[in-house]
């Protein structure tokens, strides 16, 4: 019996080595361990083993069963491992991915506008808007622009047949906002389109994009304007951005400044780029608003405010190094997908 068990073990372990698929393993299991299997048959012979040998034969039987079961399990694991490994056979991970619906993009102007809007909203500004077809009063008169100012000319500004005009700047939204404001402070930004009667070329569009800001309260100062804009430009252009204010002239602010930002371009000398105009709201603007409203919310003796505005097209060109403004309206996909 003991020798039978030994030779069964040798035979079974040798047989295991030759098996190459799961079906053969299952057949092996049935052949040795099944109800009618060879080991099962031998263990049935325990009945006839003399009592004094039972302990020894029993131990042998267990040893052989463990060896066959263990050998089978090892073979099964090895075979599963080989199969799992082959699941990724032939995959070249370096091949390009599937494009799906393709990759879309937001227009660079949208991106820069949203950057500006997000930044200014964090600073406590909310959005305002107004019509693009404006009255001359909102676009010029209320903004302290002289009646014979060249900007009002038909050669410079688009007019509608009814005498309205296409706003030449988003500053008209300042007026719209103050006209309808219910209380102070007024703290708004207005991104939007503006129009000038310019031939389209590499640096000019007849329709362009601006963002305007207005802050009016009892005690707004030039220091607020400076702090706000410095913070804004450092958020947009980076924390070490140099900003400078040059005195300038606008009819609707006094004092007025133009703002330059120092732009560092790779391989080029850093240079000052004119980015925005700003200033303290001219008291004449408050006076005209007060006259129109018929109340004293914007009494020029009691309130002060600052305003600034900048061209988003210019900002996008500066930020991305775009040399020809026409790219922004041609929508060549080879251009758009770069952003």
């Amino acid at each position: 019996m003991l020798s039978q068990l030994d030779s069964l073990k040798t035979e079974a372990l040798a047989a295991l080595e030759t098996l190459s698929d799961e079906a053969a393993l299952e057949a092996f299991r049935i052949d040795y361990l099944g109800k009618k299997g060879k080991l099962t048959a031998l263990s049935a012979g325990m009945r006839d083993v003399p009592v004094d040998l039972k302990k020894e034969v029993g131990a042998k039987l267990n040893e052989v069963r463990d060896a066959i079961t263990g050998g089978l399990a090892t073979r099964q694991e090895a075979m599963q491992a080989a199969k799992d490994a082959s699941a990724v056979a032939g995959i070249d991970i370096t091949l390009p991915g599937r494009p799906g619906q393709g990759i879309g993009s937001l227009h660079p102007l949208t991106q820069i506008r949203d950057l500006a809007v997000r930044t200014l909203r964090r600073m406590g500004f909310t959005l305002a808007e107004g019509p693009e077809i404006e009255t001359e009063w909102h676009c010029f008169d209320a903004l302290n622009t002289p009646a014979d100012h060249p900007a009002r000319n038909e050669s410079d500004t688009f007019y509608m047949p009814d005498g309205k005009l296409l706003r030449t700047h988003t500053s008209s939204v300042q007026i719209r906002t103050m006209e309808s404001a219910k209380a102070l402070p007024v703290r708004v930004i207005a991104p939007g389109a503006a129009y000038r009667r310019d031939e389209i070329d590499a640096t000019h569009l007849s329709v362009f994009n601006q963002i305007e800001a207005l802050y009016v309260d009892a005690d707004v100062s030039l220091a607020d304007l400076k702090g706000t804009l410095e913070f804004f430009f450092r958020e947009v252009f980076g924390p070490n951005t140099a900003v400078r204010f040059r005195p300038h002239f606008f009819p609707f602010t006094e004092p007025s400044f133009e703002i330059d930002v120092k732009i560092e371009a790779k391989g080029k000398e850093a240079r000052w780029m004119e980015i925005a105009g700003c200033g303290m709201v001219d008291p004449a603007v408050f006076a005209e608003i007060s006259r129109k409203r018929g109340d004293s919310l914007f009494d020029p003796d009691k309130v002060t405010g600052f305003a600034f505005g900048m061209g988003l097209d210019r900002l996008a060109m500066t930020l991305h190094g775009i040399s020809d403004i026409r790219h922004l309206i041609e929508n060549d996909v080879r251009f758009l997908q770069q952003f």
């Binding site: 799906g100 393709g102 990759i103 949208t110 129009y195 569009l205 007849s206 309206i329 929508n331 997908q337």
Partner: peptide, 9 residues
């Protein structure tokens, strides 16, 4: 997968 355009008004 769409590209945003900006055309003249």
């Amino acid at each position: 997968g769409y590209h945003e355009a900006q055309t003249l008004r």
